[in-house]
Nucleic acid binder design. Structure first.
Lengths: 199, 199
DNA sequence: TCACTTGTTGTACGATCGTCCAACAAGCAA
DNA sequence: TTGCTTGTTGGACGATCGTACAACAAGTGA
């Protein structure tokens, strides 16, 4: 009887991604309070000590996870735009409405996001990552609004306002799903866009 | 030389309030991660064991603090309305704009709020408290909107949308203050209200 | 002045935390 | 096969966590 290997050596990049994925799942399931080295290691099917081998500190793994999850959200939004009709307004609607459907409108994603927010003041660099994330969202929104005929001088405030409205609806939708439906959220956002684009 | 008392016995209600106040200050300063029994006890100038004497568990103190901070925010909003001109629209503007000025637009209040959000899924009853808090905010908003001539059928969606816009602006204003100014936030919110009230 | 009640203290306890590191073994080169 | 590199393990370490509880003393009534 030949004993099978107790573990296998993984490609460093693949292992990093595996740890990041495990961290994201733990944050989604248990929030920031449950994201300990040991919990993440169990989730990744790995020894606790291995995390220290790939990340100087747990905070660095969490920061890397922030970037990963942020990119995933960005990709989901972009996919929604790509799947929409080619008309500028349809693309704008798709971008905005995507925040009220899976995989973005999800209590677990909110839990993950809250965990990140709770670290913005503590971890250096986390604030910069947040700023970048929101800047990218607003820039994308501004381009879509511009394609709908919104003149450049009004673009900045419009993008900020739409971002705020979408974030507020998304937050409440995840926090207490019984208050209003995703369809209602989409309708409210589109009505806001109507008024914005018209005048 | 007579030694002065090592401690003084306090009125139970006053002591409870003192502990709640200390918990609020710690949450504001350090977030949920720093809100330990010992930290709160030091903040209150009291022995760690005393907290267990007034609250069955730390979670109960935090829940009580949620109610306390929530009431404080509600009072600040109401004070802003009371200080405004008597015209319905001025009162509505005051209510909405108050979220973008002290003491509500404050990074420490956001940290406190994030701490509460992070416990909504864990602590039973916390979700109900959040729902109550937001329901009260929307109801107050709906009344102010109604006074501005908004017909009753449109009231629900209007209140939800304005709440979301205000929350989103407040969140981003606290999270990255350099992105836009409180005045800009107020202007954007008022413009939204203009469109809402007009048509 | 002297019990008596009880608010308050300080610590013990077990669990869990992040970090560190010596020992082990998987996989590759020779 | 043999030896080497290094990804991986698993536990040690000190700190901190929430809770429980025996001992103490402040304030009150007799």
């Amino acid at each position: 009887m030949t004993s099978q290997p107790a573990f296998r050596r993984a490609d460093p990049d693949a292992r990093r991604q595996s740890l990041i994925g495990a961290c994201a799942r733990v944050l989604a399931r248990e929030g920031a309070a449950g994201a300990s080295v040991r919990t993440i290691a169990v989730e990744a099917g790995v020894s606790p000590g291995l995390i220290g081998h790939y990340f100087p500190a747990l905070d660095d793994l969490i920061a890397a996870t922030y970037a990963h999850v942020g990119a995933r959200v960005e990709a989901a939004l972009e996919a929604a735009v790509a799947a929409a009709a080619p008309e500028p307004r349809a693309r704008l609607d798709a971008f905005v409405t995507a925040s009220f459907a899976a995989p973005i409108a999800d209590a677990e994603l909110l839990a993950t996001w809250i965990a990140f927010w709770s670290l913005v003041r503590t971890l250096p660099g986390m604030a910069a990552q947040h700023d970048g994330q929101y800047f990218a969202f607003r820039e994308r929104l501004a381009r879509l609004l511009h394609d709908c005929g919104l003149p450049r001088p009004r673009l900045r405030h419009a993008a900020i306002a739409v971002t705020a409205l979408v974030d507020g609806l998304w937050l409440e939708l995840c926090l207490s799903p019984g208050c209003f439906t995703p369809d209602e959220a989409g309708a409210m956002a589109r009505q806001f866009l109507d008024r914005l684009v018209e005048g």
